[in-house]
Write a protein that binds this DNA or RNA. Sequence first.
DNA 1: GCAAGGTC
Length: 812
Amino acid sequence: MRTVLMVAEKPSLAQSIAKILSRGNMSSRKGLNGTCSVHEYTGTFAGQPVRFKMTSVCGHVMTLDFLGKYNKWDKVDPAELFSQAPTEKKEANPKLNMVKFLQVEGKGCDYIVLWLDCDKEGENICFEVLDAVLPIMNPTHGGEKTVFRARFSSITDTDICAAMARLGEPDHNEALSVDARQELDLRIGCAFTRFQTKYFQGKYGNLDSSLISFGPCQTPTLGFCVERHDKIQSFKPETYWVLQAKVNADKDRSLLLDWDRVRVFDREIAQMFLNMTKLEKEAQVEATSRKEKAKQRPLALNTVEMLRVASSSLGMGPQHAMQTAERLYTQGYISYPRTETTHYPENFDLKGPLRQQANHPYWADTVKRLLTEGINHPRKGHDAGDHPPITPMRSATEAELGSEAWRLYEYITRHFIATVSYDCKYLQSTISFRIGPEHFTCTGKTVISPGFTEIMPWQSVPLEESLPTCQRGDTFAVSEIKMLEKQTNPPDYLTEAELITLMEKHGIGTDASIPVHINNICQRNYVTVESGRRLKPTNLGIVLVHGYYKIGMDELMEVSFSPLAATGKPLSRCGKCHRFMKYIQAKPSRLHCSHCDETYTLPQNGTIKLYKELRCPLDDFELVLWSSGSRGKSYPLCPYCANHPPFRDMKKGMGCNECTHPTCQHSLSMLGIGQCVECESGVLVLDPTSGPKWKVACNKCNVVAHCFENAYRVRVSADTCSTCEAALLAVDFNKAKSPLPGDETQHTGCVFCDPIFQELVELKHAASCHPMHRGGPGRRQGRGRARGRRPTVKPSARRPKDKMSALAAYFV
DNA sequence: GCAAGGTC
């Protein structure tokens, strides 16, 4: 007979599930670690009779840590922990000998069914179990499937049986996401903790810097406390004014009325309203209403709510409350105390636990009444698929439990009785008054039936005097009307209960770990617990959190500045997503693609325009035209190439006039004419956008040659000058404006050597006309053919030897 | 000596 090994996440679940699947017909024994049990029974699986072995692990089998040698704080740079230090998986709890236990039980098994909790951590534990067990299980028979995953959402007969009937496979990706989470937690936590601790160690006399920890959960937890502290510190009280009126209800009773305007923040305005009402002798009833309202019974109790109430009403910290609850659970007084669920399964036996309380000295009457008159169905809550809500399982007295455990038990029990009790019903009466032109209201509540508030008296509708019976048109004598000056108050420090709510809302920690994180920030001396279990950050806690904000800077900057995506104007299209990028003019000017979340720096100190919607042939980004002004130079550039140079000999920030692309029409290769007359490495490049005041500009220095004014077309020819190797320019003029001899409108020649062009070219500097920069005798006038390649050949090799003075005269 | 997750 083949054997099916089944593994749950914890011993209690293995037992419950085995009980359901075996219909109570199983034999149980303890495993070798003394903690996990094995429940065995027979049944059918995959159409054959089999033996089932249901057991469990105890949470995670493995834990992630750095290799042992990285434990030496003095010898390891924390930065190494952040990225390079290798990690290894170790047994989470060596005492439990979990791997050995799984292997002993798994040996000789043919199939495995994974009953781990149905969340990511559970999925990860599936693979921890498989790593331990698969190598020692029987070999598979002809590719038959042997690994199964049971997916269930509650521990009920129907759900468990349905899961068994529809087994799937474990999800490796979910498990891997937990591996990633573990590694991030470890690296971030350890690296920053060691860095902070070492940084502050021995620096300040009054600071206990033995351990200054940082973590992805504990630090945000502390952050909430400091945030509240900052709100208190920066609070500026405001004065406001309220009108308060009293009317005579009966002979000896007066009624306090609330002003419909609630309050005003301007004294003179308040005074004006007072003046308008203070001489009135009567308050007139304008309307009355009576509405029946209900205060809902509580949802069934889950861990987080229990911790909240333990803190706020019992003054019991979450860690302590959890320990107490666990003891009550192991002693059989309450059900499993770690659950997110606030919904009882349909077939949950609510009367059983209730009957247990029928003779309790404190609430026997209430319970007996519920049992005889019928219980109310609990409200529909949230089913997280883990465990039923926290429920008292057995009656207990204070003497039996001791004061602390009793108080928690009493609360859990009262809460449970409340969930099967009726809502509290009350009558809300409202009378609307008018005194002069101003409106006032008076409300009163009277309880119709207390419902659950009988067992939870602290939830009672506060006793209020009932309102006099009256109707529209009645009048009451005004006994007093006055103006009260009050002030807005700062919030108080965060209560533990509020912190738990914030953590839950922001997904910091889990129901099981929230108490640990809160405990951590207390133990590390980041916060102290004040009266009413309010958490007041210490100087250390405040300084740390403020420091993190400063490092992040965003928090401070965003107050005054808007993010990139919300700034700038659409200019050119991104080559990746083909959406418009925004041009941010503020220095340093850049283009930002909000879709790709990429920023491209642009050359500074000039203007940027779209360049005819032309695109770079390399990356499809739309080109932009950079210009230093009408008398300066301009060139197209590709935003992507300028930030990611496409060729080896290009540098960041280069435009198309320095691009060595062999065929692109905007490149140096196609528009370059010859070496610069002034600088060593520059090349004069035709600016194709400059007509009709054509320019040739050096792509390195600020030399600009103005030429061929009024030509309607200037092109760089493929031919070169036979004397100086510079590229020839082909120039076209209109007939009317042609400066060419005869009636010529076209001419092709060398810009340096051609006598006809001599009159048509003038050298200037882009930025300055200082004589120092003018070309002249003795200065360097190298130039040469640069087309198709950068002038990598030394200028001197191609410099015409006998033309120095001629060129000097020519260009000045 | 460090994190966070699971469970005892």
